[in-house]
Design a binder for these strands. Sequence first.
DNA 1: AGCACGCCGACT
DNA 2: GTCGGCGTGCTC
Length: 616
Amino acid sequence: MYYYKLSIIGSPLEPFTYHSSKILQRGAEVSVEFNKRIKRTVVLETCIKPEFDTSEIIEVHEEYYSEKQFALAQFISSYYICSLGDVLALMTPFSTSVSDENSVDWECGKQFSIELSRKQNQALNFLKQHKVSLLFGDTGSGKTEVYMKYFEEILAMGKRALFLMPEISLTPQMSERLKVHFGDLFVIWHSKLTPLQKKKALQKIYSGEAKIIAGARSCLFLPVKNLGLIVVDEEHDESYKSSSRPRYNARDIAIYMGKLYDIPVALGSATPSLSSYVKFPHARLKGGHFVSQKEFVYEKAPESLTPLIENSLRETLEKEEQSIVFLPTRANFKYLVCGDCGHAFKCAFCSVGMSLHQHSRALKCHYCNFTQAIPQVCPQCQSSHLVSSRLGTAEAVKNIQEFLPHARIEQFDRDTITTANKLKKALKRFNDKESDILVGTQMLSKGHDYHDVTLAVVLGMDNMLNMGDYRAREKALSSLIQVAGRSGRAKDAHVIVQTFNEDFFKSYIENYELFLEDEKVFREELYPPFKKLCRILFAHKNGAKAQEAMREMEANLRAFSNVEIVGAKKCAIEKVANKYRFEILLRADKSTDIIKAVKTSKVALAEVDMDPIEFG
DNA sequence: AGCACGCCGACT
DNA sequence: GTCGGCGTGCTC
């Protein structure tokens, strides 16, 4: 009899020991009876006969997790501090019943049509020369052609590539382009595929027909053989970070996979994250291929539809041209800003915006819980005109409609654009000139091509710039750049930016490198990539229990002098899904210190969020 | 994490 | 009487 340690797929529990008369390989998927139910499990290792009685493995499946998948799962499990079973649940195993022996290999004679400019060629060569590299290319500078040429070369070597893009289900244009170019060699994989679509895509992956696999986070865990390259487009995008356990960041996992598979990883962005910019060498692709000019107009005002904006929208409409109106991502919190000078209230300890808690009549820091009374006057200009109003998308649409009754206005956000189809249709209406004004949030700027926008209105940027988040500056500036990039593709355009922080945006809008260099200084003392953060969440329908768990873990953590407890408190969003939430925020120089401290201090209720990007 | 077990309150 | 609320403890 042989004894095996098995990880239960999807279970947070430690491995259990079962026996079998068969010799099983590590990574094999087997089913067992566990707690009177049949469970899928994965063979971890063999072991000696344990003290207790064991049950027999019921069935050995065709599915198996490759050595590399297994090694990756172990890394994720240890870095993000969760069970192996939780990681394995993300992965799609290989299968012994299908073989890619008959896969039609890439026809070497076939000519592709991608022609690169000299600059693009230089960039591609740079990417090829580095294990991990960053393609720092302005909107419209031709990053996609560089990726496509790179894919062609990978195909020519008989290898396959993963192409990660955020919100793939919402960016049909990019997929279309790759589909047209690579035909059946190209497949899409994301969580919104129907079961049938998934089955078909998986068939193509198993058979080896699929060579370029594009997708969101989960495509990293597909059973792809002969992997030669991973490209992560829009690497700065937040959607690469998973918001459920394990809370991994697909961009970081891609980089780890590069090492594990010994293949290159290319990250791309027009507005790279400071982390990637600091860690990896970059190739710079400057300038768009648009000949048109863009003029930035700054308006000092709190978030509102001002006369300037009304007039600009009206003029654009009268010229029968199109506008987009961008509202910063609907933050969960309100921030107090001086309506006259734009002064924002920052935490003295964390240098991030303090958010307004109306019911407790206080300003609070969401990192360390520093609290102060709501001030009556602005400390900078003595004005008593302190505002915290936010404009919603629907409200903005309504208000614009009131002064432009004949304009065809569309709301363009998560509330209205719920499916890929609705998105396609709304984009088509806009590009066919059946609508005049799009009003929306982040979704407006996510890689869509608007042919003829001559006015971009960016409302209340200060709400974003002053958020209680160490990445507020990065987020605000990159959002503005991304929105501005949607206008002026064919004709000259205006971008109206509503902000009291004109100097900030003015100095960096044409020079993101300069921003990154300056941002290094701001981050150095307290924040990533120079310091490591980790957030521990405690959620329970009984608030006292959640708090008790937090207190216990906090006490355990105090034993680790190299890990700073920044805060241990109620979450800013106290209750979610009927559960009360508490959190601990940790800071350290090295992630290994955090991992060690958290692993040994962990209590049952704790959920670990390593490298958090959301606080609340 | 599930899920069974078990112990109390409120209903046909 | 019992249906069902959720606290507790166990799973090779």
